[in-house]
Computed example of a mutant assay.
Amino acid sequence: MERSTVELASRASLRLRLAHGLLRVTLRPAIDGLCVLGEWAPQRAFALANRAELLAVPLRPARGTRRRPVRFPGFRAEWLWHRDDPGPDDIERGAILYFHGGAFIAGGLHSHRRLAARIGRSARLPLLNVAYRQLPEGHITDTVADTLTAYRSLLDRGFRAEHIVFAGDSAGGGLAFAAALAARAAALPLPGAIAAIAPFADFDPAGKRAHPNDRRDAMLSARALAVPVQRGFARDGVLDPAWSPVNHDFTGLPPVLIQVGNTEVLLADSEALARRCAEAGVAHTLQIWDRAIHVFHAGADVLPDARAAIAEVGAFLRAVLPAHRQQLAETAPRVRA
């Protein structure tokens, strides 16, 4: 793998372009409108966003997916794996530690079960989907602490750090980096890779407000992303720069894959993360997908672009994780001398 790679995905499919245009005139105005409630009554808005997770209860992962609930002090998680792949008891193969998105106020096991299971299936790895504490109950410091609790649980079970992947989307994509930085600060061994989908990794909204995608994004605006951090995380109106992964030195981090759309407001955060990787000499790939809506991977049932992106995540993880490389070597045809 080259140390630094930027890949521009091919032109968006017709379905993705239609979805982008439709959401731009429907969902984007609705989310911007909800910002008013978040700014004037943040605790009420955060509590309502938490309850939206109940709407996702009917969602089910693909047939053949196995589930196992896990309870931690203060939060829940669940293992997801396909019946044809190694499960979480096969610690030699490794695992994905997944952090869902939702701007730290929404999302959870139900909303992300189908997407997370697809990613695990693509990588042929069991995946631990973590429902970390969110606003209004949990501050970002609590959230990051939960990621470390989940990571320590894998290490305590016997998983080797280099066989573990930190992955996530949106807020969870930023958390994948925050968790790795927290593990380094705690003198824990670092994971084998990081895979982030449209990561929210800079809590200072200035960069996103100045970015042209603040007007082009089909779903999110800099204002929408600023509400949870400024009304929920800020202390006396002040955000600690250390809470944002983009403000850290990435020296020693494992190989990184970042996927983001070329019209997303979070392209600003993705580019900042890629710069930090480059400055620290961390091998990384930034994939920029044409007209991709935020976390378009969740539409894999109908979007060919989403299926291709998930396949890219799986290919990346199979290429960088030692257990997969060893399996490929063992199954490769031998040439007689």
Score class of each variant (00 low, 15 high):
D204Q: 04
V229E: 04
R63N: 10
R28W: 10
A167Q: 02
L257R: 08
R24N: 13
A323M: 03
R83E: 15
A106D: 13
V335D: 11
V57Y: 12
D240C: 09
L125I: 12
C35D: 10
H100I: 01
H82I: 05
R63L: 13
F46A: 02
H20G: 07
D236V: 02
P228E: 01
G168E: 00
A311N: 11
A171V: 07
P191A: 04
N247R: 13
R63S: 14
R28A: 01
G107P: 05
G207M: 11
G108K: 00
A30N: 09
T5L: 15
M219N: 10
R3F: 08
P73A: 05
G87Q: 07
R276Q: 10
Y98D: 08
T251P: 04
R276T: 03
R209S: 08
L321P: 00
H297R: 04
Q259P: 09
L135E: 01
L109F: 09
L115H: 08
G299D: 08
A224M: 08
A278C: 07
A224R: 00
H112N: 01
I197A: 11
I119Y: 08
R157M: 11
I140Y: 04
T331M: 14
G107Q: 02
A319N: 04
G120A: 05
A278Q: 14
D156S: 14
V313P: 04
W289V: 14
T65F: 08
I96K: 01
D236N: 13
P255Q: 02
L257Y: 09
P322W: 07
E264R: 05
E312D: 14
A300D: 14
P254W: 02
A278M: 06
W40I: 12
P241Y: 09
P58G: 07
T143S: 07
A182R: 02
P58H: 07
L266N: 04
V227I: 10
D236R: 13
P254N: 01
L303V: 12
D204C: 02
A77V: 03
R114V: 09
A311S: 14
P205I: 09
D305E: 12
L34E: 02
G192W: 05
G207A: 15
G33M: 06
A323C: 06
L188S: 09
R44T: 15
A280V: 10
A41Q: 13
P126F: 09
V335Y: 09
T26S: 15
A298S: 13
V302E: 11
R334I: 12
Y98M: 13
A9L: 13
G173C: 00
A300H: 15
H100C: 04
G207Q: 12
R157F: 00
A186C: 06
S221M: 05
L115W: 08
A45V: 04
V246G: 00
V256G: 00
A283S: 15
A117P: 02
G108L: 01
L127H: 02
I194M: 06
A176E: 08
L27T: 09
L34R: 09
R93E: 13
T5M: 14
R17K: 15
G237I: 00
E271Q: 15
A185P: 02
W79F: 11
A185Y: 08
I194H: 05
G168V: 05
A193Y: 02
R121W: 03
F233M: 01
M219W: 09
